[in-house]
Design a protein around this nucleic acid. Structure first.
Lengths: 105, 105
DNA sequence: AGTATAATTCGACATGTTTCGAACTATAGA
DNA sequence: TCTATAGTTCGAAACATGTCGAATTATACT
């Protein structure tokens, strides 16, 4: 992996983080969620706490925690403790960067 | 993985295919390559044969073949035999689909 | 037919990933 | 200070991936 540029490694790690169905589901929720029937505002990051994010995914809390940590390490998801909870969100800038990877110069 | 929709699985598989640095390099070449100093025409798919695509990557031919097969199975790269060679290319439509995954509705 | 070039398949081995439960830490509130 | 809730860390088991070399197939050319 050291034959590659920093940028190439960043994208490899980002896609690796999204290569697991549970992690992709978690990321999609953070990316797309807005109140039902409303338009998403792409300039604002929606926040979820860890527990709510894993709702309906049928994975153990330890697994959920592990996956979120992976998404965080890959730079895709931000995390911050707020009292008993840990809030997670996706920075809109990240989405732009990922989207533009697939748009050739 | 059968808890997920067809679309979710398609994206998971696409990102899995791009989660290895060698495969990402191969895909990037197909995606971005155009004659040096020229503007890429995003509506036209550039074609490479397998051997040329692996140039400089320092992997065995069998490994190269394996990775291209993975990219093909994930639906990211098209392949077609042309005489002794096998040509590879990326359909511009695929890039649009991947790019728009990261653009929330 | 025989040979050279391009690519694939196969089997093996080392390494990484996914998932869990049990034990642990952090915080808030009674 | 005790208890409940929210998350994390750790170790283990099952499974998947990346890589190679050797053998094989496909095609073109002599």
């Amino acid at each position: 992996m050291s034959n590659y540029t920093v940028l190439q490694n960043r994208f490899t790690n980002a896609f690796k983080a999204l290569s697991n169905p549970n992690r992709l589901a978690l990321f999609s929720r953070l990316m797309n969620c807005c109140a039902p029937g409303t338009k998403c505002d792409a300039t604002i990051a929606v926040r979820f706490c860890v527990g709510d994010l894993g709702e309906g995914l049928n994975i153990a809390p330890s697994t959920l925690s592990h996956h979120l940590k992976e998404l965080n390490r890959a730079g895709l998801v931000e995390m911050e403790r707020k009292g008993k909870n840990v809030e997670c969100w996706v920075e809109p800038e990240k989405l732009k960067a990922l989207s533009s990877f697939f748009q050739p110069d």
